[in-house]
Design a protein around this nucleic acid. Sequence first.
DNA 1: CGACCGTTTGAATCACCTCAAGAGCGGTGG
DNA 2: CCACCGCTCTTGAGGTGATTCAAACGGTCG
Lengths: 253, 253
Amino acid sequence: MARNGGDEALALFLERLTKRSVLNGEEREAVLALPMREKRYAPGEDIVGFGEEVHHSCLVGDGFAARFAETADGDRQSIALHIAGDMADLHSVVSPKAITPLQALSACSIYQIPHAELRRAANRFNAIAYAFWRDGIVDAAIIAQSVLNLGQRKAPARIAHVFCEIAVRKKLDISKQALTFGFPITQKQLGELVGLHAVHVNRTLKKLRADGLVTMDDGTVNILSWRGLAERAAFDPFYLQLEPLDFHAGDRR
Amino acid sequence: MARNGGDEALALFLERLTKRSVLNGEEREAVLALPMREKRYAPGEDIVGFGEEVHHSCLVGDGFAARFAETADGDRQSIALHIAGDMADLHSVVSPKAITPLQALSACSIYQIPHAELRRAANRFNAIAYAFWRDGIVDAAIIAQSVLNLGQRKAPARIAHVFCEIAVRKKLDISKQALTFGFPITQKQLGELVGLHAVHVNRTLKKLRADGLVTMDDGTVNILSWRGLAERAAFDPFYLQLEPLDFHAGDRR
DNA sequence: CGACCGTTTGAATCACCTCAAGAGCGGTGG
DNA sequence: CCACCGCTCTTGAGGTGATTCAAACGGTCG
């Protein structure tokens, strides 16, 4: 059972949970005690294949992973982006046959946590069961925002929105001047995230750069003007900000 | 506490649950015994407002409801469509503050079920808790397909896909010749579902009609050729078909 | 009756895609 | 070592899809 990097990822995951659900000391311990096994993946590699049945969930250590969908015609679209501390497929606990493949977007480390252990923690502590359920809801809310992003925004706003979302999810300090994060993906992959073709992604990035909003070179995103970028994206982080909810009280109404 | 139409909707909801999760007699009883209160809404009316905190979930009786998102610029996009037997916001049990409004798409009846009762059923029966969690995952999978739909498909395929999905979710008999269902919404609303403007929806419907695939008049969708429509949509119902999973065995691996 | 809404069609414009080509870069094999 | 391949980024030109503005028609409601 791997620790070290795994402990860090698990701590991030716990933070993610407790940001949305109240967990007491015992419950936190139970989460932090989850056993796991480390795996590394190269960019583009399948972490969980399409239709595959898994018996563990995948906690992202570093790098980026994403779930994909494709049409019968073979057009690819990425559905959900996962960063360090995300349990990319916590839903597999209740739906173990993957309806979308999970792939490494960049080189990334994954910590596999057995479903049996997750289920045990949920069965032992009601609050953990609710926290897991809620975590899935938050994921769904993020996907719902993607629907809005693809359905209503034009290319520059779509790309700006993705950058804004990652910055907030990574908990970067928005007030800081130098707002930068590693994002080692190709323009083609970025296109799959926002439903655009690589060529148009290229032109759009050029425009955003020319407008002094953001750059993306050498696998690094550099936000030159948070305000400008957020405005261009029409970004409202409300959908990410769920305040913690307490599921301990038996029947709070 | 309303019954009649409510019982029917609840039976549909139970069917939806048991299609995906195994529930025993006692558990089924518990679901069917849920108390509820009927409400009726006119097209466009808010069922749950943006940011509103609710203490009940909304079971759709008849008609159609949808959740919406909008950009800071005011562009509307519908995120999720709900039909009879759907618990439109079961997620509100663990996330009571609505991050997207729920509105009546057509005239529709809603049966409100108190969160306290849902939570009680989940606390009493582990399998129900898992079934609820799983239900949310299925909803998320449908939204994920919308991302694919908006990101990768052109207008005719998008609209065709929506019609195919509704037909399958309504459990219509695909093999039948006359494949028809009521769908009393405007072209503008359909546009909000698929991320297109009303004018273009109109032209696209005209094209689909000319190709002998589908018509939509007087609030009725008439699928002239299921095969042709499904092919045009590149429709693959896999994402809807989750076989039932049994959560009773304490620690099945 | 007039006002309004939804549908339908036309024409012009804009956004995005497709095809194409060149430059840079890393990896491979002769 | 160099020639070559494949992949990514970049830019151009032309085509398609979707939007926008506009106008006409029928139906409904006050």
